[in-house]
Amino acid sequence: MGKTIVVDNLKKVFRRPIKKEGFRGLLDFYLRPRYDVVEALKGISFEAFYGEILTILGPNGAGKTTTLKILSGILHPDYGSVSVLGHIPQKREKAFLKSIGFLTSQRRFVEYMGWDLPAVDTFKLVKEIYDIDDRTFKDRVKLLSEMLDLDGILEVPVRKLSLGQRARVEILCAILHYPAVLFLDEPTLGLDIVAQKSLREFIKEFVRKTGTTVLFTSHYMKDIEALSDRLIILNKGRIVFQGRLLDVYEKFSKSKRVEIEFEKMPERVPFKDRLIEMSLMRALYRIDSDKVTSFIKDVVSRFSVKDIKIMEESLEDLIGRIFREAA
């Protein structure tokens, strides 16, 4: 499997103006402007491969979007090297720009180019930008609009579309040229649950058909569970984990969730110190991974038990804990 992206010791620093509140603060800034320095990326390294969906996960300000912006050539790194499809993104070579797609979380290309025009007009412009021939263009618009459930709305002015429809139009616009590398910055943000699910299915299907490398950021665990081949967890500009989703459990999961269904409810709630929640005849416990067997033995010997379920720690809890520990 060939590499599409190689990132080595990437660093990025931003300078932010510091202004105090009110007119006095404003005047003070006029006379003595002050800035602080934010290290958005502190030397990250990773690789991505053809046909892979790689997720970048992290709390706000972790450096996820900055990473995507550097990889797509929008931002210039302060240190380290980046190669995407063998190009240095910051050179903005035509061949490079023709082979990537970027969907920003603001998703505004279609909106700003053709707010009052039907989306299909903007698609025709995109066709020219990427030099797509007529036949291919027609086939792709038909296929992608079916996949994205956009049939019948491409002739409607963009301003008349719903938020979800506009989001899907922007996605179509970002991938019409079938990029070899696709950057998606929080693609499901602002979509309802049904739209989120269909978008996830679409991305999977698109990657399967085209072999595109997808790098995406998201805050939704469902996106990550459904899409990720591999995961990078960023925190405060540093990679705290990279690997498969299963590896996250192996590396970080220290406990399991054990659900006990009692035949007859005990008079007092047992093992209260490890209890997560209690409902009617069921009790859910968080138990250290190495103590699960002894815990179950103990329960079975002391109570009348109808059923026992052992579950992994939820991804949301796990990721939350990783963030807290890294902080």
Binding site: K69, I74, R92, K94, I100, F102, Q106, R108, I129, F183
Partner: peptide
């Protein structure tokens, strides 16, 4: 305005 708001990113990732 596009530079200030970051909207220009939408154009910079295209061969333009």
């Amino acid at each position: 305005w596009f530079v200030r708001e970051g909207i220009m990113s939408n154009f910079l990732t295209r061969p333009l």
